[in-house]
Nucleic acid binder design. Structure first.
Lengths: 241, 241
DNA sequence: CACAAACTGTCATGCTGTGACAGTTGTCGT
DNA sequence: ACGACAACTGTCACAGCATGACAGTTTGTG
């Protein structure tokens, strides 16, 4: 009775429901119920993204999303805490990928440099459609953030929550204690801000570029070199990118 | 401490009535009606902050806030676009103060350093109760951000909106074109992130400090020196900080 | 005083998010 | 296979946020 998944694109995301940790539960022997839940969840995500792309975020109601999957709107809220939460699942996956790539970087790289390469390579792969990531959804999210303040704010909030995790990872790599050393915090925060800046630059059309990864890479490079630039009056007009 | 800014402050109007024309702010005799509006607005802010402090953000309804000032909840939304918007007015004032202090810094200071001093001196004054700022309200906002995700997200979103303005100011000081030079964007973004980090550190109790300004100053100092730290394996165990 | 404009209150409406309860379906033990 | 049990879902109901429309009141002006 529910052939709703027929039109779903092959985006097999293993995002756990309430899994705050990036547990990639493949759930091999989860049973039929678990499978059905997973399918319903993915169908909701798919339906949501599609409707958002068509009508925009605000104009799309939860009921419409649920109707498209043939479940009640009440059920929707059993899968997602809010309408924004649907979008966060995608960001979770991206963050997890960056995290993994970062851990794999050689330990002789400075922190920012390591994150730089990890992030850029991940995004590049994402742009090329590798890793099972959906470039279309990536673009959709960007467009939504641009148009809807609610999405934008939610994304920022979510990023800030990941910030704590990132701080811990960075502190570990630096071999310092994050409870006494403030440096990991600044680093994690700066990294987060670079991502948002790249997003913003692309959305606002301030810079003309083809790829998100290019902007991101450039921003990271600036951050690596230090950014306490002199004022115009005290500085010689050095060649600026 | 009701009329902490009775004279000149950019008030956040609901959608439609932009504060681009700051004419009325300069005219003290704008009529009885204008005065009454101003009083109602401040009363609403006051009432909101008090109730938020007592019952928390979520638990406080718009109706309660309005009732305390003896207006309808409908009227509340004629003054503020949302419940979060009430809190943003306070942040607006802070941002304006930092902006002004930044502009007054000597031009031989590098950008981060200038913002560093501007922000810290402003916050210090704020902590001491100068400038008509209400330290109590400052603490209340911090507490609210800690407890309510909605407030937190809203604050981030608002900060990001100011980000564009900050970028422009910094680009001006650097004497570069923000449409071709990415550096001002990184700087503005990093500054924004430093503020949030300081907030986070205080709220989470990660570091033990007496004053917000102390953490902020320390974070700024780190940012000034560059933050591309080596990994533990590649770094000599020199004194950190 | 009369008139226009602005401000406010009341009513009505739509959407979000949650709680409670009952019905259905999947899971497990026997 | 059958029944007990847990999990999932739908329906109903409700509180709160936010907005639109309309009418009544206050204020500023000629």
């Amino acid at each position: 009775m529910k052939e709703l998944l027929a039109g779903a694109s092959n985006v097999g995301y293993p995002a756990g429901m309430e899994a705050t940790t990036a547990v990639q539960a493949c759930s091999p022997l989860a049973g039929r119920r678990e499978r059905k839940k997973q399918r319903t969840r993915e169908a909701l995500v798919d339906s949501a993204f599609q409707l958002f792309a068509e009508k925009g975020f605000e104009a799309t109601t939860v009921e419409e999303i649920a109707d498209a999957v043939d479940v009640s709107s009440r059920t929707f809220f059993r899968y997602f805490a809010s309408k924004e939460d649907v979008l966060r699942t995608f960001q979770d996956e991206q963050f997890g990928a960056v995290k993994a790539a970062f851990s794999a970087r050689p330990s002789d790289e400075p922190v920012i440099t390591a994150v730089h390469h990890a992030a850029v390579s991940m995004i590049r792969a994402c742009e090329d459609g590798a890793f099972g990531f959906d470039p279309e959804r990536f673009g959709c999210l960007r467009q939504l953030m641009e148009s809807s303040p609610a999405v934008f704010g939610s994304s920022l909030e979510h990023g800030q929550k990941k910030h704590a995790e990132m701080t811990h990872i960075i502190a570990e790599r630096m071999g310092v204690d994050p409870t006494t050393d403030l440096r990991p915090h600044v680093v994690a925060s700066a990294i987060n801000s670079v991502f948002h800046t790249a997003f913003e630059l692309l959305s606002s059309g301030t810079v003309k570029v083809d790829r998100f990864s290019d902007v991101l890479s450039e921003l990271f490079a600036l951050l690596e070199d230090g950014i306490n630039y002199p004022a115009a009056a005290a500085a010689s007009p050095s060649s600026s990118g």
